[in-house]
């Protein structure tokens, strides 16, 4: 009977494991976004999440990345990140669009310092959107990262000025997303919203996805989350391999974004950033 086994392949085995379930849902969302959005683009922050997402884009589209990859560059990223960008933009055949950001002096002065600095990224994103007229952006945020992100929808419409109205979000169920909009609406699509930090690392390990070296511990420190050099800080860690990172995440008591200064300056700083269009 074995020769009649309809499922001879590991990949399409009789059961899908946990990561398969997450992955196949993400692929479904990516294909929905590609089909429904006029001029989509994918945001590539160079971090682990967007690398995993780009990997799944290539799975969804059979090796191709059929939309531009956008990097909003504050000019203050780590050198390792720039090197990573140049290498993999080439290796993965990306149509890379790099967008600059206005100086911090032009940002809302009532924001706390780190949030004000982070706001440059939102401004840079808006400039990019105006220039390229993207109908929607695919972004690799996750629900477990942070409170306001826990409330996001997979297809999240943005009104005027890219603002997010979290008080009146469209219903979203049975994988039917809001895909009808008046002209001019801008859309954010979140294909890995349902993943957690440890899921991403396990997937990176399983698939062999490259990540920036800064995630691995050197001299007792590593970065959990990568942002601008001046407002991102490493955490104490000895995890220098994928196995060790996964083991660390199983026992850690520290939140993922604890090293991101703008999340913690004041109670509502991050919420204000997000309502204004920050990822």
């Amino acid at each position: 009977m074995d020769s009649l086994n309809p499922f001879p392949s590991r990949k399409i085995g009789p059961t899908m494991d946990y990561l398969d379930v997450l992955e196949h849902r993400t692929i479904y969302i990516l294909r929905e976004a590609f089909n429904r959005i006029d001029r989509p683009a994918i945001l590539w922050s160079l971090g682990k999440d967007s690398n995993a997402m780009l990997w799944m884009v290539r799975k969804a589209f059979f090796g191709y990345v059929p939309m531009p990859a956008v990097h909003i560059d504050t000019g203050k990223k780590f050198p390792e990140m720039y090197a990573f960008r140049e290498r993999f933009a080439r290796e993965w055949g990306l149509d890379l669009k790099v967008g600059g950001c206005p100086p911090v002096e032009e940002m809302d002065p009532t924001l706390p310092p780190a949030a004000r600095s982070a706001a440059r990224k939102t401004a840079g994103l808006k400039l990019m959107l105006e220039r390229e007229k993207f109908g929607g952006l695919i972004a690799g945020i996750r629900r477990d990262e942070e409170g306001t992100r826990a409330k996001e929808r997979v297809f999240s419409p943005r009104g005027e000025e890219n603002k997010w109205d979290f008080r009146d979000q469209p219903p979203e169920f049975w994988d039917q997303f809001k895909t009808d909009f008046p002209p001019g609406t801008h859309l954010r699509v979140h294909p890995i919203l349902h993943w957690t930090e440890i899921d991403i690392w396990r997937y990176i390990q399983r698939e062999g996805i490259p990540v920036v070296d800064l995630y691995f511990a050197k001299n007792g420190k590593r970065y959990r989350s990568l942002g601008d050099q001046d407002i991102t800080f490493p955490v104490d860690s000895t995890a220098s391999t994928l196995d060790e990172i996964i083991a660390e995440l199983k026992r850690t008591k520290v939140a993922e974004r604890s090293g991101r200064a703008m999340d913690h300056e004041s109670e509502d700083a991050f919420e204000r950033l997000r309502a204004d269009g920050y990822l």
Binding site: F7, K11, I12, M16, H24, I27, K59, F61, F62, G63
Partner: peptide, 16 residues
């Protein structure tokens, strides 16, 4: 299927 060595001969519910 992208990035696989072995040909895939079957697929099932839940898979994209």
């Amino acid at each position: 299927v992208w990035n696989t060595d072995e040909p895939v001969l079957a697929a099932r519910a839940g898979q994209s």
